[in-house]
Amino acid sequence: MAAGGGIDPIHQFEIKPIVGLKPLGLDLSFTNASLLMVIIVAVISIIMIYGSSQRATVPGRLQSLAEMIYEFVASTVTGVMGKDGMRFFPLVFSLFMFVLTGNMLGMVPGSFTVTSHIVVTAAFAFLVIGTVLIYGIVKHGSHFFGLFVPSGVPGWLMPFMVLIEAVSFVSRPISLSLRLFGNMLAGHIALKVFGGFVVALLAGTSVFGYVIAPLPLLLAVALTALEFLVAFLQAYVFAILTCVYLNDALHPGH
């Protein structure tokens, strides 16, 4: 009775090719994930580019939304990095919007959650850490590595501190990617599992199943609301941490 994709909570993460594309032995097919990525870019572009095309002094709805998002991200960036952090504004903005829109579109029933794949979140995390490293070293040279040498630490403790700082730096991309991936994956699995309980209980022949079926349904509804919160929160956390890490590249040294 539990057979088929209806109840399998993992099924929703499967990647299915839409247009096959395999040059040089690499599988670069246009898949459902790729389709969602294209839709994400389209949705963001509609809000930000079409929304601002009127350039109205008194904004309409879509322009208000575009301005609101702009000011929200801009205030986050300047709040963490200060005024000169605005050079990273397009990067933080693109990351935040891509992750947020990906999370939100993943909440549409039957769609696909781009951010529930670790390779995507890891790519973003390494993009951030790569930017931090390259910008930090190009801008500050060896002074950038002062990041690993906290001030005011006694000499004998220094090797340990440097080691701890280095480990914490290296673990940043891992935690950054795993946090987003884990939240999205777990949330969607939980939703599917509770939804599956409802189906399984109703598919059963027992009357008892019909009686308690509403319970997992209620839980699934509550979880859906929670998932919307998590979808926004994780995008915001990703953006904030991106700002914090980029701040190290801008202003190294504690």
């Binding site: 690499l26 599988d27 898949t31 294209v38 870019v41 397009p90 693109s94 919007m97």
Partner: peptide
């Protein structure tokens, strides 16, 4: 590989659109 390929394309396009036009 496929995911990274399409992510690079779509995110690149998004970054370009945002940094050159929208923002």
């Amino acid at each position: 590989a496929g995911q990274l390929f399409w992510l690079a394309i779509t995110f690149g396009v998004l970054y370009w659109l945002m940094s050159k036009i929208a923002l």
